[in-house]
Design a protein around this nucleic acid. Structure first.
Lengths: 205, 205
DNA sequence: TAGATTGTTAATCGATTAACAATC
DNA sequence: TAGATTGTTAATCGATTAACAATC
């Protein structure tokens, strides 16, 4: 009976998750679709429809239990896991992610970083060892990471992605500001396009 | 007769722009809606409808002139300008943006960075001077920047945003991974939510 | 002119909203 | 029980796709 979940719903899930984390941190135990909708700028109907894509998590006359709903979304989005990942490119952006981003909160942990800069190879950044790109296959063999984070120069992005997929990477988080055009529908790619976001801001100004 | 442009269309414009830049770099002079649609995974109808939201840029029997269409989108999105901007937070992420992001390509130039770290204050990063947050009002007065880029810790984001708006900032590019909830609809905010992107990737895996 | 391709209207599809019976 | 609020169906709305006359 597997009904396909629309992309619009999937993209709202992380926002629900963020708000539910905030609510839980604030000690709020239950919430109705109406209250959550107001908070997020949605309608109560939409909130209920969204959650019912995955089966009902609420209770008539009560609403939703914040902790339960939060956990349900974590499970739906598969962030209640501990997936090994690598990061390719340990320049400023790579370093910013390694240092500041809470990977554990999203079910991911970094096992290695790669860079071509000899000054970095052999060092650690926030506990993550930096290897030469030459060691890629060896490290893949050792840790079997499933996610590769691309924070290397745009020019090398496509070649890197192909090499990563060839040695077993299952998904790519792409910060290189270009489309990879991999033609491999079984390998999901999520892009962070800074320029698209800035253009939209520019339009709204 | 100002018909409102839907958010879906606005969010496709940057992608069109990117593809048109690529086409122009490749020396391609004209393109039909069908060819462009194939390249981008859209339909020809959608491409034509999108461009017709802003008036027709094509010619029957010919298609679209790549350079003209590119320029038209740049104009629509207001990236053919030279808007002054500041960046608040010069840690790894701020530094990564200052150093690597091509602001000029999107009609923006950085006039100043702000940080609370005394070791950074008074230095320059890629030609951009770093000031103490205490100098904010003074620098605003001097350069009248319109965009503020928030790359500071989440905790201080909201207070910073309010202070920036109080002294004249017109739009915010928010990298702090939380919603600012400013309740100021006249000040556009564009968020880069790393975690939402990673959650979607996680779901697709 | 004939062929190609747009601009635009109409048809379809999907997503959002409204309504309400079910039920805690 | 009465009140609240869900889950779910039906109605509406908006976005995408198809079709085709206009025209380069």
């Amino acid at each position: 009976m597997e009904k396909r979940i629309s992309s619009a719903v999937i993209h709202r899930m992380p926002r629900y998750y963020r708000h539910l984390c905030d609510l839980q941190d604030a000690g709020i135990v239950r919430i109705s679709s109406g209250t959550l909708a107001d908070r997020m700028g949605l309608t109560a109907s939409q909130v209920r429809q969204d959650f019912n894509c995955f089966g009902g998590f609420g209770q008539q006359g009560y609403g939703y239990n914040v902790a339960e709903l939060r956990a349900a979304i974590a499970s739906i989005m598969h962030i209640d896991q501990d997936r090994p990942a690598i990061i390719v490119g340990a320049g400023n952006l790579g370093k910013a992610l390694i240092t500041n981003f809470n990977f554990a909160k999203y079910g991911v942990h970094l096992v290695a970083a790669f860079d071509s800069n000899p000054a970095l190879i052999g060092t650690e950044i926030a506990g993550v060892p930096v290897y030469s790109c030459r060691s890629l296959e060896e490290i893949m063999e050792q840790y079997h990471p499933v996610i590769a984070i691309l924070t290397l120069p745009k020019l090398h992005a496509k070649a890197a992605a192909q090499r990563l997929i060839a040695c077993g990477i299952k998904g790519i988080w792409n910060f290189t500001n270009n489309d990879l055009h991999l033609d491999m529908p079984q390998i999901p790619v999520e892009n962070i396009h800074f320029s698209e976001s800035l253009m939209v801001l520019s339009y709204k100004l």
